[in-house]
Amino acid sequence: MSTKRWIRCRGVSGFLVLSLCMVASRMLAGQGAAPTKEQADDAAGFKEFSSRLQAYLKVQKTVESSLPALKSTDLPELITAYEQALARKIREARPHAKAGDIFTPAAREAFRHASRAALEGPHSANSRAYMQPGAPTPSMRLAVNGIYPDTEPITALPPELLAAFPPLPAEVAYRVVGRTLIVIDVKSQLVVDIARLILPPAS
C-alpha cells in the first residue's frame, strides 16, 4: 500500500473513530448513570450512519483517484468539467443508490433527536434566524445521485447543530433544505443521501 493511500485510509478510519468517540462522549456527558435506551439507540444509529458513509467514501476515493486532481485554476470551465466528471463516475459506481442507504432508519432517528436538541429550546429562534432567510427553496427537487442545484443558496448551519451531528471528513458535508437533511459530495455537488423530516418544524 502506498504511503499516500495509507494516509487516506487512516484519515477515513480516524474519522470513524472520532465520530464514534464524539457520539459516545455526548451520550455520556454529564451523566453518572448508564445511557438511556434512546441514547444507546442513537449511538447505534450514528454508528450505522458512519459505517455506511465510510463505505461511500471508499467508492468516492477510488473514483476520485481515477481523475486528475482538481487544482486551483483561472479557468472555471475546468472546475465545472471536474465536478461533472466526478459526479458521472460516482453515479456509475453506485447506480442503485437510493434514499436511506446511509441515513438508515436508526440513523434518521438519531439525527432527529440531535436536531431537536440543538434547535428546540430557548435559543431556537436565533438558530432559525441564522438559517433563514437566504436559504434554498424548501420545495426544490432533490434526488440521490442528483446535483444540488447550482442556483440555489445553501442554508448556513448553526454551529450547535453541526456539533450535535457526527463530524464528517472534508469530502462530504451536511446540507439542510427545509426540514430535510442531506449529505452532499463536496467536490461534485452530488447528493449522496437524503433524509426527510429530520429537522423539527419551525415554530
Binding site: 483561472d74 472555471p76 442554508t155 448556513a156 455537488q189
Partner: peptide, 13 residues
Amino acid sequence: GNHDKTNERFYKP
C-alpha cells in the same frame, strides 16, 4: 457566502 458554491475555492483569482 450562502449564495456561493464550495468549489469557488478552486478559482485562482
